[in-house]
């Protein structure tokens, strides 16, 4: 835990940065805005109060991220109801962005994620997340294996990224996380992963106060509790603070194929009828085999490529990625949560 002095210091610097950024943001908003962004002047006119008021809270670093987020273009759903009247003319602004602001945004984002780093303080993360009206129950993320010679690459890099995400989730009150990595490298390095998560949790929460976690491999039907193999009894299971499940390409199409094989064999032996195979039935089976559908899928890559992610499990999942990001950074994670908190799901209606 960091002491109060350093916390205060950070707040002061962040205030300076955020004021500076906010000013910049206001002057640049029109240039960068996506097609449906409301102009600041219009926002003032809207009678509805904002969903969460950032100004009333003593300044924290989340304001900084909020600024960066707004520059990138806020969520549509949030505005949908309020500004039917004044967004008729905004539709054509979208295509005007040139390369210059694009580079500017990249530099700005790099700077922001450097300036804002939760530096291993779950309290700060918790404070950020508490301002959001809703958070996802289950989060999933796709991590990429980078070659050894790259910065933060190799297996160590992957383990580090994975355990970072685990601590962010835990600090923001999300207790179900699935990590997808195509080749299943994490699955092959379970002891290292458990140690890495343990270490990370210790630096975040302090060595006396380490939360319990479980690592699950749905494909092999294995569960590991904590860093050491202590006895799995019911008491321990109840105390688990975060469940981590590791997915790889094998949990995707291949699992559906395996399920089909099993069903085919059963049908051949007249154990089930073909008519009984319904969406609900398949859904139950796949939930058993792979896990629940996540609410939010965060991609730490600049484009959407699902790399064989379980197809059944992305039906209504909110997907978050950033066009110019390829780093596993807290600011990206937080913006993903922010985006999710303003989304509304209406199935078909």
């Amino acid at each position: 835990m960091s002491d109060i002095g350093s916390l205060k210091k950070r707040h002061d610097t962040s205030k300076r940065i955020s004021d500076f950024k906010l000013h910049e943001h206001l002057s640049n908003n029109n240039k960068h805005s996506n097609s449906l962004v409301t102009k600041p002047s219009e926002v003032k006119k809207s009678p509805q109060p904002p969903l969460y008021n950032f100004d009333s809270i003593p300044i924290t670093t989340s304001k900084l991220i909020q600024t960066a987020y707004e520059t990138r273009g806020p969520n549509l759903d949030q505005q949908e109801g309020e500004d039917i009247d004044n967004d008729n003319d905004n539709g054509k602004n979208g295509n005007k962005s040139t390369l210059l602001p694009f580079f500017f945004i990249i530099i700005k984002l790099r700077f922001l994620s450097l300036a804002y780093n939760p530096s291993k303080t779950p309290l700060l993360i918790n404070e950020d997340v508490n301002k959001l009206p809703k958070i996802p129950k289950r989060v999933s993320t796709i991590l990429n294996y980078k070659p050894e010679e790259e910065e933060n690459g190799g297996i160590d890099g992957l383990l580090n990224d994975g355990s970072e995400v685990v601590t962010w989730c835990l600090s923001s009150g999300i207790n179900c996380l699935s990590i997808y990595e195509y080749n299943g490298i994490l699955k092959k390095h379970i002891p290292e992963l458990r140690r890495s998560i343990y270490k990370k949790l210790a630096t975040y929460f302090g060595p006396d106060n380490i939360p319990n976690f479980s690592v699950k491999i749905p494909h092999l039907n294995l569960i590991y509790y904590g860093v050491e193999d202590y006895d799995i009894d019911e008491n321990n299971q109840k105390k688990i603070d975060i469940e981590i499940s590791l997915l790889s390409v094998i949990d995707g199409r291949q699992t559906i194929v395996d399920l089909t094989k099993i069903m085919a064999d059963m049908a051949k032996n007249d154990e089930i009828k073909v008519e009984d195979i319904k969406i609900g039935f398949v859904d139950d089976e796949l939930r058993e085999l792979v896990g629940e559908e996540p609410d939010l899928l965060i991609l730490f890559q600049p484009y959407i490529d699902l790399q064989g992610y379980p197809p059944w499990h992305i039906r209504l999942t909110e997907i978050y990625w950033e066009d110019d990001n390829d780093q596993v950074a807290y600011s990206v994670f937080y913006r993903a949560l922010m985006k999710y908190s303003t989304c509304k799901v209406n199935v078909g209606k």
């Binding site: 996506n34 097609s35 449906l36 273009g73 549509l76 539709g91 979208g94 195509y182 995707g252 199409r253 484009y303 959407i304 490529d305 699902l306 790399q307 064989g308 992610y309 379980p310 197809p311 992305i314 997907i319």
Partner: peptide, 13 residues
């Protein structure tokens, strides 16, 4: 769409 190598574009228009 979940296959690797498929390009997915989600745009605001």
């Amino acid at each position: 769409a979940s296959d690797s190598g498929v390009m997915v574009e989600m745009i605001d228009t």
